[in-house]
Structure formats: C-alpha cells, structure tokens
Design a protein around this nucleic acid. Structure first.
Lengths: 105, 105
DNA sequence: GGCTACACATAGACTGACTACATGTAGCCA
DNA sequence: TGGCTACATGTAGTCAGTCTATGTGTAGCC
C-alpha cells in the first residue's frame, strides 16, 4: 500500500486498536499488523509521536509499567477518546461512501 | 469532511472523473461536486497543480480550446492513465478493506 | 459601470507521516 | 563472553501533497 494514503486515518486506527483494551506502543504496532494481515507495518517513528499527540489531545492516557525488566508505556482510551473513535468511524463511512461513489462501483 | 483525509486519493478522483470523457479543469471541479452530492468542493489551487502533475506523469494529455471567448485546457486520459486508474481502483478496494477491517464492522 | 460566474495559474505555508538515528534490556546461541 | 535478535521507547529532520491566498482576464447580466 502506498504510504501516504494512510494520512488522516492514523488516529482512527490507533483509537480502534485500543478500543476495549490496554496496549503499549510496540504491541499496538503488532496488533495493527495482525488485524490487517500484515498490510499495516507502521514504523515506530510514526506510531510513538502519534500516541503522544493523541494523549495531549486527551483521547488517551498512559502509565508506565515494567514487564520482565522492560519499561512499557501502556495506553488506554479516555471517555473522550471513545467519543472520538465513534466520530472517526462515522467519518470513515462518509469518506468511503463519497470517494467510492466517485471512483465508481 | 476533514480536508486532509483526501490526501493520497486525489489522483484517483481526477482520473476517475475523466474516465471516458474530456473535461477542462473548472468542469472537473464541478463534476466532482456533482458526483459527491456537494461533499467534494476542491479549490482550484488544489486541482490545477494536480492536473499538471498527472500530465507530467503521462497519465493525462491536454489541449487548449476556446469556447465563447474563454480559453480552456481540456484534459483526457492517456492509455497509461487508464491503466493507472485501474490500479488506483484496485488500491482503493485494498485500502478500504484494510482500514475498514481494523476499524471494525 | 459594477457584479457574478467562468477559467486558469502560481507562490508559499502548513501538516502529517516518513526515514534515520539514538538508547537500552532480555534472552539465545556459539 | 561476545554478538545477535527481539523487545521497547523516543527524537530530529525531511518531504510530499494539499491548502490558502493571490493574481489575471473574459462574458454576460442588471
């Protein structure tokens, strides 16, 4: 998949993958790979800054924990993050309807 | 619709709207509005540079004509533009499948 | 004479995802 | 014990593509 087609949808992906569970950054990347059958292989330099941005926006919170000697920052959705996710899903449906309509069935 | 979600899909839209017909820049903008029920209202500063980019890429050709005193640059797809459109459509299906899959049904 | 719609175009800013780099631990294997 | 791989987080700088703002000019209406 061309890289830049993702642009504007990264937030939605990150929120969706955290829906109903807590994950740390590295696990988020793996979860996205898994859910997309390997199609989404996001570089760390893309994901980590995005997570911090979402946290600053109040959609995520995080805490540090240590698992077998390794430090992890575990993220989970806030209530406003859940609302944002719902909004992103709606927007996604509109987006695909519009573009799909122009591209033709 | 958030503006930047379009990013990466503009080429596909322009190629699709020119599929099987010739249009000039201004008419392309109107055609996109029409096909999207007004959702896509692209500024000229977005469309004209994109058309020239696609022409440089060999996917479009253009010729000048004059209609009731106004100069128009009319674009149409080249053969490789048609192939590019087919590729863009395939990519679009993959893209929506992948992202849609992650976002959840 | 002024306004609106038509029609093309460029310069520059801005944004968001990318590449490349930096750091460090745990566990395996030779 | 030394090196490799997987795990894990993070920053700096780049780059592409779309946007905003601006500019030019014609036709037709009122």
């Amino acid at each position: 998949m061309k890289a830049d087609t993702l642009r504007g949808h990264l937030d939605a992906l990150l929120l969706a993958v955290l829906d109903g569970r807590k994950l740390h950054g590295y696990a988020i990347i793996e979860a996205l790979q898994l859910r997309s059958d390997g199609a989404l292989d996001l570089p760390t330099g893309t994901v980590y800054p995005a997570l911090r941005r979402l946290e600053r926006a109040g959609w995520l919170t995080s805490e540090w924990d240590v698992v077998s000697g390794r430090k992890r920052r575990t993220y989970h959705l806030t209530r406003s993050g859940e609302q944002a996710l719902a909004a992103e899903r709606t927007e996604w449906r509109e987006f695909t309807t519009i573009i799909g309509g122009v591209l033709g069935a």
